[in-house]
């Protein structure tokens, strides 16, 4: 498969999850694992452009696919992309554990729906748990990244 544009190969047991392959075999530890029931979304990556929970997919199933992870989101010189920058500007993360999954999920939303409403953002992120932010600044960051004016949304 290709990961963040780089060709990678690996031999894995049949039961190895894509999340495990990324973390343990490729040392791409930005993809996190927060549950074992496919509910938290910390592990979301892109497979052939679609957001998937990498804990819900076998590494073998992604064979031949193009996989995108949080490590591949910023520019080569380290400049954050617009969505990442919006998360920083609007304090959309605290402990950072849910953040890779949130960013990857939100990126998929904005690709399909470049100007989502607040309700659409909330509905789309329903599969991504965050325990730190109360979601306020995450939703705000995603709206801001889509170019919408968020200055009317209360507070810092």
């Amino acid at each position: 498969m290709s990961v963040n544009g780089r060709q990678v190969r690996g031999e894995v047991e049949g039961r190895t999850l894509l999340s495990t392959f990324l973390r343990d075999h490729l040392s791409l530890t930005g993809t996190h694992v927060g549950c074992d029931t496919g509910q938290c979304g910390a592990c979301v990556v892109h497979v052939d452009g679609v957001a998937v929970k990498s804990c819900n997919m076998l590494a073998a199933e992604a064979s031949g696919s193009s996989v995108g992870t949080i490590e591949g989101q910023a520019a080569a010189d380290g400049t954050l992309n617009a969505l990442q920058q919006a998360f920083q500007d609007h304090h959309g993360l605290q402990c950072g554990f849910c953040t890779p999954g949130m960013v990857m999920s939100a990126a998929a939303l904005l690709k399909d729906n470049p100007r989502p409403s607040e309700a659409e953002v909330r509905a789309h992120l329903e599969g991504n748990l965050c325990r730190c932010t109360g979601y306020h600044n995450i939703v705000k960051a995603v709206l801001a990244a889509s170019g919408q004016d968020v200055s009317g949304i209360a507070a810092e």
């Binding site: 930005g30 949080i70 989101q73 998360f87 554990f97 890779p100």
Partner: peptide
């Protein structure tokens, strides 16, 4: 002030 820790968390460079 914007959080300086965010950059590593937003790029998958955190060290959990």
């Amino acid at each position: 002030s914007k959080r300086r820790e965010d950059v590593r968390f937003l790029t998958g460079a955190g060290n959990y």
